[in-house]
Simulated assay, not measured.
Amino acid sequence: MELNAYLRRITLQRDEVPTFDDYPFHLPAVSSLGQLEFHPKVTYIVGENGMGKSTLLEGIAVALGFNPEGGTMNFSFATAETHSELHRYLRTVRGPMRPRDGFFFRAESYYNLATEIDKLDQENHAWVSPPRIVDSYGGKSLHTMSHGESFFAAFMNRFSGRGLYILDEPEAALSPYRQMAMLARIHELVGRHSQFIISTHSPILMAYPDSLMYQLTPDGIEKTTLEETDHYIIMKEFVNHREGMLRELLRDEN
């Protein structure tokens, strides 16, 4: 299975970690980490808030050479040096084929990426003829779109295939309809020999069938399935038994 993967696995070099008492190494997802295998098509990393999903994805992305705040490997801006030291202790094992494209998407710092794109295009305007950087994102400044539209513009226009795409909570500004459209886009890009590593809370985005799913828990990292995740179970229960759940949630304790 892994032979076609651009990224086969990561290994935490535990002997080199100075201490497991401090951030980010005290997080269960990191303190229990040995080796993590990746599916050649789609790998999901899910779990509750605070379990370390974004920290783990950031460490993987930076270890591969991506900018901590997102974008392609060509971006080197830094709005704030807030990323952890995890990447220094991760060893990446890559496949025989190299991706021609790649992108690290971070919902929380996407505004900073959009600002950097505008800045670079303005600085290069007098020296470089089109295409501008923004042309590969649909041709309009990402700041002129809604949050969800700007996210979707990157997914639809910037991702070109034969790529390694690391996405941290890409559903943050997407409607359910757009999430389904993104799932279709993922399938299209997988058909163009792309690999995805996705952290998400969305049961819709988690639904890609040919995939591997890891759940981060207080006890570490474990393999799971969509139907076993709290995200799916709670959403299904709420949709199917909304009135009962609302009565319980909104119960007057007095």
Rank of each mutant, 00 (worst) to 15 (best):
Met1Trp: 07
Leu3Gln: 11
Val17Thr: 13
Thr19Val: 11
Pro24Gln: 03
Pro24Val: 05
His26Ile: 10
Ala29His: 00
Val30Asp: 02
Val46Leu: 07
Glu48Ala: 14
Asn49Arg: 12
Asn49Met: 12
Lys53Glu: 02
Ser54His: 04
Ser54Asp: 10
Leu57Ala: 08
Val62Met: 02
Gly71Leu: 02
Phe77Ile: 03
Tyr89Val: 06
Leu90Cys: 07
Thr92Glu: 03
Pro99Val: 02
Pro99Glu: 03
Gly102Arg: 02
Ala107Arg: 00
Glu108Leu: 12
Ala114Pro: 04
Ala114Asn: 08
Glu116Leu: 05
Lys119Asn: 13
Leu120Val: 15
Asn124Asp: 15
Ala126Phe: 08
Pro131Cys: 05
Ile133Leu: 15
Ser136Thr: 14
Tyr137Lys: 07
Ser150Asn: 02
Phe151Gln: 02
Phe152Leu: 10
Asn157Arg: 10
Arg158Phe: 07
Phe159Gln: 01
Ile166Tyr: 00
Leu167Gly: 00
Glu169Thr: 11
Ala184Pro: 00
Arg185Asn: 11
Ile186Phe: 03
Glu188Asn: 09
His193Glu: 15
Ser194Met: 05
Gln195Asn: 07
Phe196Glu: 08
Thr200Ala: 04
Tyr208Ala: 09
Pro209Glu: 12
Asp210Thr: 10
Tyr214Asn: 01
Gln215Trp: 00
Thr224Ala: 06
Thr225His: 10
Thr225Gly: 07
Thr229Lys: 11
Ile233Met: 11
Glu237Cys: 08
Asn240His: 13
Arg242Cys: 08
Glu243Ala: 14
Gly244Ala: 15
Arg247Glu: 13
Leu249Tyr: 11
Arg251Met: 09
Arg251Leu: 12
Glu253Cys: 06
Asn254Met: 07
Asn254Trp: 11
